[in-house]
Amino acid sequence: MSLQSEMPIPQTTVKQDRDIHSPPHSNPAAGEAAVKVTADIVQTNRQPRSSKRWWADLLWASIIPVVVVVLWQWAGGAGWISPEFMPTPWVILKSLIHLIASGDLAYQIGVSLQRTLLGFAIGGLLGLVFGCFTGMFRKAEYLLDPSIQVLRLVPHLAIAPLIILWFGFGETSKIAIIISGSFFPMYINTYAGIRQVDGKWFEVGRVLEFKPYQRFTRLIVPGALPSILLGVRLSLAVSWISLVVAELVGSTAGIGFMINEAKQNSDTPVIFVGILIFAIVGKLIDSLVRLLERRWLHWRDSYRG
């Protein structure tokens, strides 16, 4: 889109058309034409991707998965890989259908999702609040940030055994593991997002006499929003990964439990179903946040490829 380069053209027409001794803009027709031309451009610029383009992108993205699945099925059918270690896609699909039909899968996904969202809600909220404090107040930064940065460098899964020691194998320890994972990405991105809000806007805020709370709601929140939403995305991803650990360590329900149980029963296809579910649900959660990004951050003028 070359909106910028389009603009001088109608404007020069305005100049040429105008009688030089008359006041500026005595030729409304030319001015209006200019506005219309640009308005059309703006309209096309705002349109979302066409459905044709969407299907083409989807086709392009599915090349690699389709090739892998076809090769896998073919190699399995030819007897080159052991069905105990590596069941074919077809067998996995049958197992998936069975799990869906029995209602077992929906139940396990429900349990896992609930844990993830609860853990993320607490960890993410804490990260957001702490990030806001250290981002906005120097004193809070000096007090909190060094300690948080040190803790951040400890792989949060390394403290999982400690959490289990403290809270046992119950629900509390699972949520605690997820909280410990989801806190840091949210914290870092909120803090960094606030710090990268352009200082020039604060000068505008001073000239327009913004009150302190308006500085927060009108400059800091929208300015840091791209980074905060990235924090949400990363934090949800880490929550989902932490869930696997929490459930594999010991649980009586959830996708991780389903995988663990299948391992003990040597029911390999179910393990694959579990892995598949982790991938699909993870991707769906991520897409949901990206949808929010597209809705809330459409004003951004960044490179789209």
Partner: peptide, 11 residues
């Protein structure tokens, strides 16, 4: 005509 346009759409 530009009331609802965003800054990125302006020259």
């Amino acid at each position: 005509g530009f009331e609802k346009a965003y800054p990125k759409e302006l020259s």
